[in-house]
């Protein structure tokens, strides 16, 4: 599994560098690829806010949702990963103490 993922990942990184000097990606593909990072990251961020680990049903986790909103605000204002992670964790701990 690890080697297969590694190979795929390397090819995705290498192919455009090695080939694109000569080959152009189709316009529609370039346009679609621009949305991949935002769509993927949002899809990774959202589920742990709404599912307890292993639970099949949607169970909103209010401290996590609120802390994620705080973190998004901090990320927007500061553009700093460090500030977002540190203040986001502090917000989560504070909210857990208050709400749980």
């Amino acid at each position: 599994m690890i080697i297969a993922i590694g190979l795929i990942t390397f090819l995705l990184r290498f192919a455009p560098l090695a080939l694109l000097a000569r080959l152009q990606l189709a316009g529609w593909l370039q346009q679609a690829l621009r949305f991949v990072p935002a769509a993927v990251m949002a899809a990774i961020i959202a589920p742990p806010l709404f599912f307890a680990v292993g639970a099949p049903n949607i169970v909103p986790d209010p401290p996590r949702i609120a802390a994620a909103a705080v973190a998004a605000l901090i990320a927007w204002r500061t553009r700093s990963t460090l500030a977002t992670v540190v203040l986001g964790m502090l917000a989560l701990w504070a909210l857990q103490a208050l709400l749980d």
Partner: peptide, 9 residues
């Protein structure tokens, strides 16, 4: 999720 929020925003 926090590191992803920092990259996504």
């Amino acid at each position: 999720p926090l590191t992803f929020i920092a990259m996504l925003v």
